[in-house]
Design a protein around this nucleic acid. Structure first.
Length: 118
RNA sequence: AGAGUUUGCUGCGCAGCCGCGCGCCUUCGGGCGUGAGGAAAGUCCGGGCUUCACAGAGCAGGAUAGCUGAUAACGUCAGCCGAGGGCGACCUCAGGAAAAGUGCAACAGAAAUAAACCGCUGCCUUUUGGCAGUAAGGGUGGAAAGGCGAGGUAAGAGCUCACCGGUUGUUAUGGUAACAUAACUCCCCUGUAAACUCUAUCCGAAGCAACACCAGCUCGGGGGCUACGGCUUGCUCGGCCAAGCUCCGGAAAGGUGGCUUGAGGCGUGUGGCGACAUGCGUCCCAGAUAGAUGGCUGCAUAAACAGAACCCGGCUUAUAGGCUUACUCUCCCC
RNA sequence: GCGCUCGUGGCGGAAUGGCAGACGCGCCGGUUUCAGGAGCCGGUGGAGAUAUCCUUGAGGGUUCAAGUCCCUCCGAACGCA
């Protein structure tokens, strides 16, 4: 990923859960908050043990990261984003996963508005 | 043909585009190579490695339990012995000691480690019954004094004898041994040690968040107090001199190493029934640090259990499908 | 990584190796009331032929006998670094 670092500090996670804007879909919940790092985005992933065993959790984490990578060029700079996986993210089609992430991000206002888009 | 026992293996692969960790190269655009398991799991054992304030001794505690071997070691493995199950191939077994001692054995039953309720026999008594002898018979129970026959007796009893069974000891033969077989001899004794215990053998503790180093306004270092102090798994002896709090003096997180060449893999020869050992050749095969293997498309597309975190040897548990070794029983045909 | 504890009717929670489910809460039925509550009385794991059988997270073992002892799994909660 080009402009995104991983978010691994527990206090930032708690700040996002507490004060960030959030939206929830079938496959994930997304929390968003501005950071003070300028052009850098930071992504944190949470996959709890309720989702499944280690193999399942790895798989879910990779799918969500891949979907984020597809979406990354359209995301505004300077945000911390935390994505919490839910059960459906293991089984649903990858295209549906990508679409859901995009619609959640759009609702939260972190997707760039494309030129000439009505 | 049917039913069954058993051995070992595999458990996705290829191509295209985009993407990730590590290593090397780089004209800094990128390129090349490589990248999860048989259980990586559970953490049930054993070892390496590191540190400790570890000389060490005793007690306590823990583990193991047929024999011989294998191994770095083991609670693992191999072969054998014994016991149990199965017609059999074969499978299972914490498989030392109950004759060192203690405990426990509910209910039932007269009685549970010792015995007289009924019965049987003798004597006394008018009868009811009393005294004595007796473990053959009765019922209870998981277990009731070894089984059966004969002798014997008032009635009976290993009281005596024959046979059988178990058992203690000795001897002989075979075997390294566990043990097996035979002879003589002693005895006839409940079970339980996954109850305490005894016997034999083994065990210092903690764990890579160990530990070492670097950077840092805070390091290092020093003073005072706790003091019959702290540490050494628990306790005692012994040993060591450090630990906590506070003050000079004000606190939060980082980086690097450890980290992968090893009791290593593969092939092959030799020794051994085997576990395994060893010679030669050859190969280098993940090393992350919120944690790398994913997404899409095609090949008929369905495909289990499941993800390394210091490393090895085992055990246990999970596992769709496929392949495979050696055998057994029954039926039919020749 | 290391270690400790627990699992019993619907719920909480007892039970020396010896009749499993004490006790409390809840639930059901009855009584009382015009009606409800409280009180009082009785019942309450499952199957079944109404004899009995199966039940202490699951599966094995030891024992005459296991909720209890031993082993292996499963699940939950907790401690230390």
């Amino acid at each position: 990923m080009i402009k995104t670092q991983s978010l691994n500090e527990n206090h930032r996670f708690r700040a996002l859960y507490g004060r960030g804007k959030n939206k929830t879909g079938k496959a994930m919940s997304v929390y968003v908050m501005r950071n003070r790092l300028g052009k850098v985005d930071r992504l944190g992933l949470t996959v709890s043990k309720k989702i499944g065993n280690a193999v399942t959790r790895n798989h879910v984490r990779r799918r969500i990261r891949e979907a984020y990578r597809m979406l990354e060029p359209q995301i505004k700079d300077g945000y911390d984003i935390v994505i919490v996986a839910r059960h459906a993210s293991e089984t649903m089609l990858f295209t549906a996963l990508t679409d859901e992430m995009k619609s959640l991000m759009t609702a939260l206002g972190v997707i760039k508005e494309e030129k000439g888009d009505a």
